[in-house]
């Protein structure tokens, strides 16, 4: 069953077509990566799906419902959560309180919100940081807090925008484990935008590639890695050189 379906999505900023006729659909419990060079329109795609930007044309269906015209908070309440590329978390709230903001979407009770927040923090091994201010944490933990907050809304579909950016290899491993855990054990459908190729190639079952606002490829990681158009547009000359170098 399809959980998300994007049909001929176009998003223009003035004269700029940040998303140009993008169509794809996701099955439930898929783990999909969206890749593409800087400025390709990945974040814009998330913003359109999540209702933060009104779309110029095209349709978006989530869980069988047309959400194209819905506002961001309405989309969120249907079960679509996301993290933000640059944002980490609310500065004057501690970690647990940040996660509680997410949990409050599904309950008005503080006791219940706190109970859920604690469960999520335990799930992501963040309990020890519960009382810390987010700004006091290492970047990797901050990123996990944003994921925890999104999880607080009990989403069916989770959009992650560059959660591994700026992390070192061991932190990336840790984030990968977390993502796999959410996907495997909690059964959440995930779409992630990522520049860190190790992560994308390792965890994603499927990749959607954007370039200059257009979808240029869509398929399994191995196919994408071999796709000449992708290699040229995204991975670039250097990647090609490295890999031919490796072979010889």
């Amino acid at each position: 069953m399809k959980i998300l379906e994007v049909q001929h999505l176009v998003k223009e900023f003035g004269g700029l077509r940040a998303n140009d006729d993008i169509s794809f659909s996701l099955e439930k419990e898929e783990l999909t990566g969206v890749i593409g060079p800087n400025g390709a329109g990945k974040t814009t795609l998330f913003n359109c799906i999540a209702g933060l930007h009104p779309v110029t044309s095209g349709r978006i269906f989530f869980d069988g419902r047309d959400i194209t015209a819905l506002k961001a908070h309405e989309v969120a309440r249907l079960g679509l959560a996301r993290t933000f590329q640059v944002y980490t978390a609310a500065g004057d709230l501690n970690v647990e309180e940040n996660v509680m903001v997410g949990c409050f979407m599904r309950t008005a009770s503080r006791t219940e919100a706190r109970r859920r927040a604690r469960r999520i923090l335990a799930e992501l091994n963040l309990e020890e940081h519960a009382d810390a201010l987010v700004s006091e944490l290492p970047v990797a933990a901050q990123k996990q807090v944003t994921m925890a907050t999104a999880l607080g809304t009990a989403p069916k579909l989770l959009l992650l925008d560059e959660v591994a950016a700026g992390l070192n290899p061991s932190e990336i491993d840790q984030i990968m484990d977390t993502i796999r855990h959410l996907h495997h054990d909690l059964g959440i459908t995930i779409v992630l935008i990522e520049h860190v190729m190790a992560l994308v190639m390792n965890v994603c079952q499927r990749l959607v590639v954007l370039d200059y606002g257009k979808k240029i490829a869509d398929g399994g990681p191995e196919d994408i890695a071999d796709n000449p158009q992708v290699i040229k547009a995204y991975l670039g000359e250097r990647y090609v050189a490295e890999h031919t170098g490796e072979l010889s």
Partner: peptide, 25 residues
Amino acid sequence: KSRLGFQLRSIKDNEEVARSLGINV
């Protein structure tokens, strides 16, 4: 400590994030 109180603090911090957490800002 209420839901509204938490929502406001989220709004103060970042409205786009607040909206994506289901808050009608």
